[in-house]
Amino acid sequence: MSRSSALKRWPGWVLLVLVVAGFLAFGTTRDAGARTPEERVEEISRQLACPVCNGETVYESRNTSSTSIRAEIKAQVTNTDSTDDEIIAFIVQQFGADTQLLPKASGFESLVWVLPSVALVCAGVGLFFSFRKWQRNVDTIPDDEDRALVEAALVAADAPPTAEGVDEP
């Protein structure tokens, strides 16, 4: 066995898992630094729909009402200790439920979260049964007919070549 093959057996893979887990854990847990107030305003305004324009977020829109919502968010970010979620709840309360871009996880609206999960489960179950059916259908046990075919082929292979026979040995 070559050194390369040996490496690919388990030492290399174990090392790989350790490196990935270590760096992933380090990168995930280290402090990303504080967000600037503008970045908080940006993140919050991305979660809110402009109440009067067509399908734009408060962040994208240059409409007067979006400008005033951005100013309100900025005031809340600068002057209060409210969390992002609290600021969003405040804006939604002030400007209406259709400014909330993230559907609720309760009531009828929860369907938008639940249905994709149901679809995924159905697809998974469907695939599982399909593969089971395909594997059952794979005919791996030779019957008498198969054996006869093989024997005939072997006999033909042992027989001396004829004019119509195989060109190459």
Binding site: R46, Q47, A49, L101, P103, F108, E109, V112
Partner: peptide, 15 residues
């Protein structure tokens, strides 16, 4: 949602 409950909601980039 509008057809069912006659209320407007928005589903956007966070979703």
């Amino acid at each position: 949602v509008e057809a069912k409950d006659d209320r407007r909601i928005a589903v956007g980039s966070p979703f």
